[in-house]
Design a binder for these strands. Structure first.
Lengths: 351, 351
DNA sequence: TTGAAAGCGCTAACAC
DNA sequence: GTGTTAGCGCTTTCAA
């Protein structure tokens, strides 16, 4: 029984014709929605197999009003933290049968804006954005109704869903840990010149809280600003710190990559970590578990973050049909605060 | 002039009604395909703006037969090499206006098969797969007609497009470099028990070629197999090598992550790199540029790989319409061999 | 240059 | 339990 031409692909109609039933029946078999008689089902399934039927998802999406695809917009996948998070978001989405489309913003304002304004509108049912450059105004001005969840930056009172950890508290705890080692000069790498960089601002605030609580003076030279969170930025900032008359004996980095860049500079300079300088990071990326020394870090509950983001989107998108779009999270965004913990490793241990 | 209700979104018909023209005219304006009178255009554009029109991509895709979306199926984004490559593929695709949907296979055969069999067929115009577990038979048995490009594993004589570097030669060159340091016992980390692991096999062959050419004996104990390419696997393999009566004085790793795991074990054991053991990897991931010592590695031309993959897909997918699908790369796959170079860094320099 | 209408493949209301 | 049919929003002949 030779298979008919496959070509571009068989449609429901083709299958129906071959099985000698109606399109509806085939659709029922494919979707398993309605009851269909065993005999009929068998006929249909044979035709389905013979024609190697595959549903045309574009058609299904057009009809259903939903696509089962969400977009994840990140600065870039080359940052391990982003990659690890992307992996988890993709996993959480897969559990709902959703596919994930990645948009790279490089942290650039215009790219983030384009994403917000519906670059892929109605191709995606929802959007998870990790914003770097856009702020409250841009979000408020959004006309695209696609449900949105923000990661990693709290936009105060924003009418938008949001998932993050308590950055201020995490930074405070990490700083307290450094101070508890007996270090009174504690530097910080990761401050930003751009005051809109919300996450960095919050972490800086936490760092300062800890200094203050310990009665340590604030010294702006101990907080050299960075442009981004790459290893090179951490390395450069660390060089600046080492040039000070009195360099810090401990440094908190707002990103593990910054810490790894800084670590490289310290070791190259012949300094011992943690004996001469203790070092802590943020993110708990896998690299830090294998660096020498291993890296003390604030470990956000990434799994929780990913799941929460997907769940919030699911709540916006709603059950069936195209309802729920109008909401778009507009009615007062919900905030989910994922947990975090300080993971103490060699870069601060036994110092 | 209050904006009409936006709700779910305006369609071409709505815009046409508002502008007092036909749907066709609006479509022409939106797509810029046909000439349209300035006056008409202006009317239409105003209506477009007022209604905040966004094309429904599902409908467009259904009609055009193409979606402008490709899938990139990788073991996982948490491997830096994959993440770096994904970034480049996304960039190359973006230049063509394509979006990229990421599928995570975790290197599992069933997941890779599902992807091959059209998990997202007709939602994506093409598929780039980095196979780990599937082999020639599975590819031959494929019924899904979606254009396919394979990364990183050459499937001999397979009827499928393929992009890779010359793995055998690269491994030979790297091994020669290690031998040139005067090391006569050269180990290798990354061999696989599974003979289908093509890339590992090719690299192992290159390693052996180099040993043979240098007149060095082959010692299977110097090639402990690994299960995957994570740091932990490299660490474990390195421990095994250190337990030998006569441990190697140089080690080639088939992946930078393996090398970083191995490095950690060496340093923890109090050994110096490269003085006691020289170490080289594969992939040139950013981590290796910031480890201490920095990592000598085979650097594949990732940009070329990414671009070639996208270009091959573009060639399959063809110009317009739904033609080209039938090809699916079936008519004798093309192979693109991207370049590579050995980047010598501290982990082997001056040893 | 613009309009009318067919139809991409699917789903779901409505008949039988 | 199954068939008929009307669209989802878009592109694109074919006419005017």
């Amino acid at each position: 029984m030779p298979v008919e031409v496959i070509g571009v692909g068989a449609s429901l109609k083709d299958v129906a014709a071959r099985a000698g039933v109606s399109v509806k029946t085939v659709s029922n078999v494919v979707n398993g929605r309605a009851r269909v008689a065993p005999h009929t089902r068998e006929k249909v399934e044979r035709a389905l197999a013979e024609l190697a039927y595959r549903p045309n998802l574009s058609a299904r999406h057009l009809r259903r009003g939903r696509t089962g695809v969400i977009a994840l917009a990140l600065p870039g996948l080359d940052a391990p933290y982003s990659a690890e998070l992307a992996r988890l978001v993709i996993g959480a989405a897969a559990e709902r049968g959703w596919a994930v489309l990645i948009e790279q913003t490089d942290g650039l304002a215009d790219r983030e804006l384009r994403v917000l304004q519906g670059l892929r509108e109605r191709l995606v049912d929802g959007l998870v954005l990790s914003p770097v450059s856009v702020g409250r105004e841009e979000l408020a001005a959004r006309t695209d109704g696609t449900p949105l969840v923000l990661l990693g930056e709290r936009v105060l009172d924003g009418p938008v869903h949001h998932v993050d950890i308590d950055n201020r508290r995490a930074a405070r705890e990490a700083t307290e840990h450094l101070i508890s080692l007996g270090r009174t000069r504690v530097g910080v790498i990761g401050a930003r010149d751009d005051p809109r960089a919300g996450t960095a601002r919050l972490r800086l605030a936490g760092y300062r809280q800890a200094l203050e609580a310990a009665g340590l003076p604030r010294d702006e030279r101990l907080a050299p600003p960075v442009r981004s969170c790459r290893r090179a930025d951490g390395a450069e900032a660390m060089r600046r710190l080492l040039e000070l008359d009195e360099p810090p004996r401990a440094v908190l980095c707002f990103d593990d990559l910054l810490a790894l860049g800084a670590l490289r500079v310290l070791l190259s300079a012949g300094l011992r970590v943690p004996e001469d300088v203790a070092l802590a990071g943020f993110g708990d990326i896998e690299d830090g578990r294998y660096s020498t020394p291993t890296l003390t870090t604030v470990s956000p509950d990434k799994d929780r973050i990913a799941r929460a983001a997907v769940e919030l989107l699911a709540a916006c998108i709603g059950g069936t049909g195209r309802a729920g779009r109008e909401d778009g999270g507009a009615a007062g965004g919900r905030d989910v605060e994922a947990g975090h913990r300080l993971v103490v490793r060699e870069s601060t241990a036994g110092a």
